[in-house]
Nucleic acid binder design. Structure first.
Lengths: 334, 334
DNA sequence: CTGAAAGCGCTAACAC
DNA sequence: GTGTTAGCGCTTTCAG
């Protein structure tokens, strides 16, 4: 293994000079810096983690991801990939924590100095991990919005605005009776923040526009889709606008309507809240508000890195939703 | 932060005794060990990573996962989850490397001591990372099988046997003309090992049973599915047995056959090589050979941990394929 | 069975 | 602008 002392010898300077030349924490003459850099290259030197950690920076970011039902896998994977990519761009690595570990994982990471900071996903309204984050001084960024985000750094899609945007799109097309097909019930039971916020936005926009509306959680699978579709139409025979916030249900729902003799968008308009690729590659391309998983991951990393550098960061960042019109929505009665 | 010295003071012993009591690297009397353990609990001590690294063990396993087209996301996620879970069970954490980093990521991890070992997924026949693995003494386990696995530790599904198993199942049902719908062409171009091995197994079993057979790579999406289905039938009008090794294509392919007026399994029998949940939840439950992602991840971790402990490990472990009969296969002409 | 002491590779306070 | 030196928290000789 090549140490900082090896580099120092090779460059004809002291170890500390090498350290400073590399970290830039104090001015070094161009001449020596160049010699140091050359020595580093020639020897293939890389700072050992153990030593560096004394300087209180492991260069690692922890990412806590959920792995339980009701969470859609591709979204999580998108987070992970974008987080790793962004972290690498800032010269950091990523340690993967599963949510199952919960507080324990965060505690371990914080106390052993394994990671410099942590990014949490799948944040609940009352998240059990938040007290830990507030008490320990472990820098953190949440992807998601808890009930009381004061003092925390959060980034998320503005799901409330997303719900409103969907309704407004349908209202503008003349639809008067709308339904929201939501996530599986357990998501609401756990009080996952984003699901509730979407419902709020949906409901309040529907009220504002004086639309008749209803909300149904829904599990996944063709049977569940068929069941909600039937229930919806029984309950609201005048239904012509549907918002679906349940990624794996988009295709089954399209099938279900077709099966009931309803054409999309001829008889029913459908707008989905889901990752853009899902909407674009559905059986019928679906008008959608995109969940920008990759951007959320990238933003979270940027915020955390800034936080680690001591710079001030905004408390909550809500990305504005954007609706992309595709083939699944049309004016009512056309 | 609570250090080993704090614990030592509290327990009334020397720091080294605490170290030994915790690592078990030399015999400690029950009395002192108990006192040490009590002190650890009371103080909430956890060994700092920086210090521990001196002992040349970071307690971290690196996992390199691919993120590019042609790789099905859920499989990768399954690896990740099972690896993290298994690693935790062995008191290790997991560092996430993306394949895009390639050699660089492995080099960094090896030289900085960030991780003690690495698990590689998506191994190619001629994998550019293998020389690195052999030259550095970084302990590693591959999920997948390269062309020359000598001196490496590999674990994978026996894809060759899986291909054979599918054909034998169809042959036993009386099918005489069979086709393999494979992964997207780029997978073969990259010479990903598992895809080739499946083709080999499929082909040789078909020959052995004197079946007429053909192999077609195929991209994803409904259009691609329809296109291969049509091509297949044009090329082999007598076709009654199909093997699909392309996870996201299972449903579209079922659709495509239906669209062509062919019932499954009435006219065509379909067997898939994919994760069990995909096969079980398809529009028609599909007879399948499971890709046991979770078990592969778990095994990889176990092997790596054993390797780190210096114990001997087997070179290559190929898990025997298992076929689960579901509703998509039936005797020919029934 | 236990302690004292010498490092490990690195950073940072303290010189010059 | 650079070198010397004193740690950091831990493991591991070396000595009893």
């Amino acid at each position: 293994m090549v140490t900082i002392t090896d580099v120092a010898r090779r460059a004809g300077v002291s170890p500390s000079t090498v350290s400073y030349a590399l970290s830039g924490k104090r001015p070094i003459s161009d001449a020596t810096r160049l010699r140091v850099q050359a020595a580093v290259r020639e020897l293939g030197y890389r700072a050992d983690v153990g030593g560096r950690a004394r300087g209180h920076r492991s260069g690692v970011l922890a990412l806590a991801v959920p792995m339980r039902s009701g969470i859609h896998v591709p979204v999580v994977t998108q987070f992970a990939v974008s987080v790793v990519t962004a972290a690498r761009a800032h010269d950091h690595d990523v340690l993967l924590l599963t949510q199952e570990e919960g507080e324990e994982g965060i505690g371990r990471v914080a106390e052993t100095g394994l990671a410099d900071g942590v990014i949490l996903t799948d944040v609940q309204l009352q998240d059990s991990r938040l007290p830990l984050l507030r008490s320990r001084s472990l820098p953190s960024v949440l992807i998601g919005l808890p009930a009381e985000p004061e003092g925390l750094t959060c980034v998320d899609l503005d799901f409330r605005a997303a719900g409103e945007l969907c309704v407004e799109h349908l209202a503008r097309l003349g639809h008067r009776t709308v339904a929201l097909v939501g996530s599986p019930p357990e998501v609401y039971v756990r009080r996952t923040a984003f699901a509730r916020r979407l419902v709020d936005g949906f409901t309040s926009a529907a009220d504002r526009h004086r639309l008749t509306s209803t909300v149904h959680p829904c599990g996944t699978g063709a049977d569940a889709a068929r069941a909600v579709a039937e229930r919806l139409l029984r309950e609201l025979p005048a239904l012509t606008g549907v918002v679906v916030h349940n990624e794996p249900l988009v295709d089954p729902l399209l099938d279900a309507f077709e099966h009931l003799g309803l054409r999309v968008p001829g008889d029913v308009s459908l707008v989905a809240v889901c990752p853009a690729p899902v909407a674009a590659t559905a059986r019928t391309p679906v008008t959608s508000v995109a969940v920008p998983s990759a951007e959320l991951g990238t933003r979270a990393v940027r915020l955390l890195i800034r936080k680690l550098s001591g710079a001030p960061v905004p408390g909550t960042t809500l990305l504005p939703p954007r609706l992309t019109q595709r083939a699944s929505t049309a004016p009512r009665g056309v």
